[in-house]
Design a binder for these strands. Sequence first.
DNA 1: TTGTAAGCGTTATCAA
DNA 2: TTGATAACGCTTACAA
Lengths: 349, 349
Amino acid sequence: MVTMQDVARHANVSIATVSFTINNTKPVSARTREKVEAAMRELGFRRNAVGRALASKRTRIIALLFPALQHSMSGTVIQFFTSAAATARELGYNLVLWPISNEAGQATELTANGLVDGVLLMEVELDDPRVQELQESGTPFALIGRTRAPEELTYVDINFEETLVAAVQHLTALGHRNIALLDDAIGSRSLAAFGPVSRSRDSFEAEMRRQDLVPTAFTCEANPAAGKAAAAEILAAYPGVTALIVQNEQAAPGLASGLRRAGRRIPQDLSVLSVASSAEMAAMVDPELTVLTSPGHELGRMGVAALIDQLEGRATSLRQELVMCRLEGGGSTGPVPAQEGPAQEEAVE
Amino acid sequence: MVTMQDVARHANVSIATVSFTINNTKPVSARTREKVEAAMRELGFRRNAVGRALASKRTRIIALLFPALQHSMSGTVIQFFTSAAATARELGYNLVLWPISNEAGQATELTANGLVDGVLLMEVELDDPRVQELQESGTPFALIGRTRAPEELTYVDINFEETLVAAVQHLTALGHRNIALLDDAIGSRSLAAFGPVSRSRDSFEAEMRRQDLVPTAFTCEANPAAGKAAAAEILAAYPGVTALIVQNEQAAPGLASGLRRAGRRIPQDLSVLSVASSAEMAAMVDPELTVLTSPGHELGRMGVAALIDQLEGRATSLRQELVMCRLEGGGSTGPVPAQEGPAQEEAVE
DNA sequence: TTGTAAGCGTTATCAA
DNA sequence: TTGATAACGCTTACAA
């Protein structure tokens, strides 16, 4: 290994000068800079990350804490991981992966050995114990998601509120008035505990009411079989429904096939709009689902950038960002069916 | 931060003794050990990872190199990431994520700053330039996958050979004789360049011939639309086919719907067996596909373990492991259709 | 503008 | 069985 000491000797300068040159941390004459750079080139010097970390008290490593029990959108998650790691690298950082259970206690343990400068927390719940834990341990952190009251926190999240407004408006623009939402039961967690579900549902209901429509919501587990069962349930409970908004990636294909099996053609008889899902998943269904895609890439990039800004003290203010889902084509939404429309509106109003 | 110095003072011993006690690296009297442990407990000491790394010349960090352009099985990948990270943690290591393009040159650059002790390489191609690069740079590494001649390398891979034998036998046991394979074009890479595809195809053909059957193979891009098109193509080129083996996760749903659209019921008229895919993906299709699932979890665990064994010099011999895919239920394979069977066998023989 | 030298928190060698 | 102490490779006052 070539050390700074080696470079210094080779360039006939002190080790401090080499450091100043590399880091641009003090003025260095052009002549010296050239000597040093030549020496580095000739020796193939690479500054050692560990020595640097020890001396500067900053490892330039950040950790991604994610729940080991992965239940959600895998397409989006992989996008997120990739872009988070790539962004970290661009900014001179490394990203370590820490799968943890949602219990408290683990985050601090991991953080206490000084390996990481900060932490990115995924799958944040509305009342997440890990947040307080991190605060108490003094670890800088940023959230992917939001707690119930995130005013004092750095976070990046999907703008579920506006996404659901966009979803409703996409469908009402097509003439739909009898619109139902199908969301996610997320295991045993209560509905209210999970931000994406509760924020979306609230926003769906508000936007429907704003348009003088009656909001109806259903929930099912995150798997195709549950989606299929939900299809039957929804059609029985709400026969006049002409459009469904699905925020449940795993259930969407089952829902579609359940609807088809019940004799409803998509989108001729019934429109289906998938929200906060991935384009790849939507493409698995036939016909391809119209989808408001989760911005996995943006969340990864912005989350890492927000955390690093904070670490480098260059955050002028708390970074709190919300990203919209983007509407992507697909053949599962269309105009409301002509003849049946009026009868069904009546039934609801 | 509580340092070893603090602990030493508090316990009235030297800092060396504290180190010996923590690491069990030299005998320590029971009495001293107690004093030290009490001091550590009282002060809440956590040994600093960076100081340790600098002194021991081992960071206990390993890197996962994966292609930034993700084209493959996302369900399996997330399993793999999670279990790799968890295993590393269990063994006292951290896993950093390095998304890189497949070009050479990047691996060395990342490795040269001494941040990681070793590297795990994903998506290995048969003639992977990164392998030579890592060898030349002297970085310890293990492969997830295999090069063309991996005799001298540490690797963990799916046993594609036996998996395809199992796939063929699963179908012949159900009476099928007219079996085709649909695999993956993997972008522009030539078929021969990618191990999973070429090994599987070779094994498929060998096992078919061994059973005196005629192997037929098709290829399509990794997306549902391509799968759908492939359905038509296959039925046209091979009308007598009664069973399909699909090694193309993204295309499988499209294939199934294409077959259905062509009037073939699954599995009554045609069996479909998905190989090297994830159970979640298989469940997206209706009926749920019978699948030989990729052992993402095992690959992650074993890959990390193999690398760390090597790093700690406790690898008695080169670790080279192949893991079978596991057959998981699903309703897409069944007995060969009774009446049409003979006629079609004839057509091929 | 450059150099000297004191850390940073451990490990590990050599003596005691 | 324990203690001094010299690394490890770099950053950063402080001096020159």
